[in-house]
């Protein structure tokens, strides 16, 4: 199984722009959402679904497909827009985001949406479940990979470190933790609220093979992922430096945009910047 798109970095950057436009439109239509978080991860998701992940429309139930867990479940609009852009869910379904009994609620539900592997939203769950999935691959001699995308503030949850310890102990070199390192959490900078640095050292001390990369540059991010050694008996951590709200100048790197959505002329300005 391969990725059916396998786009080049510049094509992925274009896809990310389209995803970002959808993020703005979908959040505006819904009247709420996590705009900053969605925009932060858009390039990473575009790289995953249009190049990296070995899955396609026919492989929803295929046990050999790569798995992706959006542990930062609040970034779900970014995922929905990526899935819509890839044709895995109908584009017009995005209009139902956050509506009553929608298939697209404010945190992902695996029973309702293809390629959602876990019902996240409570932080600090994805890495343990990803560890279990990666372990299942080892135990059944399957070669699929498990990608878990966490926020950075999310790493304040202790359960991540239980999972990290075990992923290294079980030598899960098929597990790739991606940290959306935009340095902001709900209330303020991560380092002001509860410092997670030195993150590289911490993850290395827990037994991870750690890489720093640019999570808003498809080219750099793909180079990092392509270079990973998936047979060195170490789980991988890719710390992807990002800008929260990336792509829309007045949303970028502003704590207030964790929950805010564009209103009035902000909508047109945001879309214009993304054209």
């Amino acid at each position: 199984m391969a990725n059916p798109f396998y786009l080049q970095p510049e094509q992925i950057a274009q896809k990310a722009k389209e995803i970002r436009k959808k993020i703005i439109q979908t959040n505006v239509h819904a009247g709420q959402g996590h705009t900053g978080s969605d925009l932060s991860e858009a390039d990473i998701l575009a790289c995953l679904f249009f190049r990296i992940l070995n899955l396609d429309k026919e492989s929803i139930e295929n046990p050999n497909r790569d798995r992706f867990i959006l542990s930062k479940g609040h970034g779900v609009c970014g995922l929905y827009c990526t899935l819509a852009e890839a044709g895995y869910i109908p584009k017009d379904k995005l209009q139902t985001y956050l509506q009553f009994d929608s298939d697209l609620p404010g945190h992902p539900v695996r029973q309702k949406c293809p390629f959602v592997e876990l019902n996240t939203g409570a932080l600090g769950h994805g890495l343990s479940v990803g560890t279990g999935l990666a372990l299942s691959a080892k135990m059944s001699n399957r070669s699929f990979r498990v990608f878990v995308l966490t926020g950075d503030g999310e790493l304040q949850e202790g359960s991540n470190w239980e999972a990290a310890m075990s992923a290294a102990h079980f030598k899960l070199d098929n597990l790739i933790l991606i940290v959306d390192r935009n340095t902001l959490q709900l209330a303020d900078r991560t380092e002001a609220i509860m410092a997670i640095e030195p993150l590289t050292d911490k993850l290395k001390a827990f037994g991870f093979d750690v890489y720093l990369t640019d999570g808003n540059s498809p080219r750099t991010f793909i180079e990092t992922i392509d270079a990973l050694n998936l047979h060195n008996q170490q789980p991988k951590a890719v710390i992807a430096r990002t800008i929260k709200g990336k792509g829309v100048s007045f949303i970028e790197d502003q704590p207030t945009w964790h929950h805010r959505i564009p209103s009035g002329d902000e909508v047109a300005r945001a879309i214009e910047e993304l054209e």
Partner: peptide, 28 residues
């Protein structure tokens, strides 16, 4: 022995890993 997994003293991880194993096809 290949079917017995000891996660150490870490109950949150115990349950999370069990969920992951079941998503990977095991009866956990």
């Amino acid at each position: 022995p290949e079917r017995l997994i000891n996660v150490g003293i870490a109950e949150q991880n115990l349950v999370g890993i069990a969920a992951g194993l079941s998503l990977g096809g095991f009866v956990s």
